[in-house]
Design a protein around this nucleic acid. Structure first.
Lengths: 165, 165
DNA sequence: GTAATAACCTACTTAAATGCTCGGACTAAT
DNA sequence: ATTAGTCCGAGCATTTAAGTAGGTTATTAC
């Protein structure tokens, strides 16, 4: 079992998509900036998310990614799974052949733990996260910062335009 | 978060000690044989278990390891923790400074998950495991095999003794 | 049609951890 | 004195995460 930034990034990015749903395709550059995740790394993660048909893409200018299903139909477990971070706690993948063909002493314990984790993460959808207060707070902060940055760079280019006149 | 054979080995080995409690010190060689874990690797794991005072050791012939506390006072979480396999799912160690100083979008989600896992593993003691049917079954199988092996090697040495006569 | 944008793809790099092995030193019972 | 055991450090092969770099293709806007 393993849960690193890989799975956390994937969930964060998907949640970012869910939060900005209805605003058209969201570019990875935007997500990268808002969530502080390397753009190239995001590309690799979204390749997997796309292969698992959790997102759909639009190429070209104004393009980006969108959720491929309803928010409430995408669970955290699915996202973590899509980027190959199994929350399976057994070493044998539940086969029970952990100790050269036979069941090891603690096999069932890890099975129980796997069930526990999986049902927990399976029970949480992106829609559930979007309405949480702690998520909303962080999202608001990020959006303010992001839009003000957009404003600043827009102002910059206006000034640059003036300068070139 | 990470749970690999390292933590699983540690719990398995501790459970082995719990199962053979009252039989004096248990050598790592015995555990290695019964549980199919490399002896040298066990040594490294038990160094950590000892440093966390989960076991006490007896050196010299007839020596080995014993639980340092009552079976019911040692939880699976403690054992996993002792070998440095944190079941902490956040990247920031609950600090909330995940995204360059500020809280990331999914921080609270991973906190919840950590709580879930921790309370689950914390609620299971070695005593709980010892009485489980699935554990008993495997333990019986291992003990039969182990004692018959001891018998065989004993017979071997008897025969060897006879041969040398 | 040309430039810009953004998805898409492949390959490489760095760092860390796992799961071992090996060799030896210390300690205590026979 | 020998032997059975714990103790300790170094080293090693493999895997993975996480990120870099460099490019190609599709689409829009000018």
């Amino acid at each position: 079992m393993r849960l690193t930034t890989k799975g956390r990034y994937a969930v964060t990015a998907m949640l970012d998509l869910a939060l900005h749903e209805g605003q058209g395709p969201i570019s990875l550059a935007d997500i990268s900036e808002r969530q502080g995740i390397s753009l190239s790394y995001l590309e690799q993660l979204f390749a997997k998310l796309r292969r698992n048909s959790l997102v759909k893409s639009v190429r070209g200018p104004g393009g980006g990614y969108q959720l491929n299903h309803e928010k409430q139909a995408i669970s955290v477990a699915q996202v973590v799974d899509a980027v190959n971070e199994s929350v399976e706690a057994t070493g044998c993948g539940r086969q029970g052949d952990c100790q050269n063909g036979e069941t090891c002493l603690t096999h069932h314990l890890w099975c129980d733990l796997s069930n526990q984790i999986h049902s927990f993460l399976n029970g949480i959808s992106l829609a559930d996260l979007v309405v949480r207060k702690d998520v909303k707070d962080v999202a608001d902060r990020q959006d303010r910062r992001h839009s003000s940055q957009v404003f600043l760079t827009a102002t910059d280019s206006l000034l640059a335009d003036k300068a070139t006149v």
